[in-house]
Amino acid sequence: MMAAASDSLAQPVDLREPTGWRRSKNQIMTILMWLAFVIVLIPLGFVLVTLVAKGAAAISWQFLTNSTIPPNVLPLGTGGMGAAVVGTLEVTGFASLIAIPLGVLGAVYLNEYGGNRILAQLISFMSNVMTGVPSIVMGLFIYIIWVTHFGYSGLAGSFALACLMLPIVIRSSYEMLRLVPDSLRQGSYALGASKARVTLTIVLPAALSGIVSGALLAVARAAGETAPVLFTMLTVEQTNSNLFSGPNTTLPFQIFMNAQSAYVGANARAWGAALTLVAITFILMIAARIITSLFTRNTR
């Protein structure tokens, strides 16, 4: 006993940093973590720089609006991607019209009505799983049940994209609905509101900003998809503004086709279309962010 006490008094108190291997290991690991981030910056920066440089060279008002898509062999200057721009806007727009209301309703079912029931758990689980289904499978699916009977059209493409968007919208809307505090629902019930009214007049408005921003991200994703569009819309050389009949084309499709071509003109058009597509996606993403930050500030 006494010996131990005098021992501890005799030793100097050492409060220095752990030396040697422990310290270096910690530092190395921290450096590696930073390195991981830098590694990811490289291809991202590379792509964005190339995209802007080569894309900007191709983009012009004519490029964006001219309704005739030139054959691959022609250089830049003739025709434009107007057909693809219109097609993208129409097809993605209609897909959103289908998928967003259905997705929000599905999330309403899961959060407000489903509770712990087996069916609700199953739907929730499978929605998550469905977000991982390759988009090309959606394209095949719509091809089999729609295109073989009704032919190629922008509508078929919309259906395929809607299948893709549905689970994404369900998931993000569900997370937003979960965040609405139950005390708001109770207050509404106590005033004699029915469940549907509580949901429509209190819960959905409260979760609206989150739902909208989640939906915008789903739209951005759909706009950039190529595979679902491959077998459902064929392609066109002239703008087809009729969504419901006749083949159509979108920006991702044109990029895909032009990328495989050996012609310089085609490649240049691919870059222009790519920059346009990324710009559209970017705008949607920024809009989503703005809505989120705007409205979370407003309610407090």
């Binding site: 309703l105 309403v108 009505y113 499978v137 959606m138 095949l140 549905l166 549907a196």
Partner: peptide, 26 residues
């Protein structure tokens, strides 16, 4: 109120329906 609940349920079921249809048709 009843109609809304049915609508929401139908939307949720759509997920399962689509997955089953994909399997079946392919």
């Amino acid at each position: 109120d009843r109609g809304f609940q049915i609508l929401a349920l139908a939307a949720g079921l759509l997920v399962l329906v689509i997955l089953v249809l994909i399997t079946y048709t392919t």
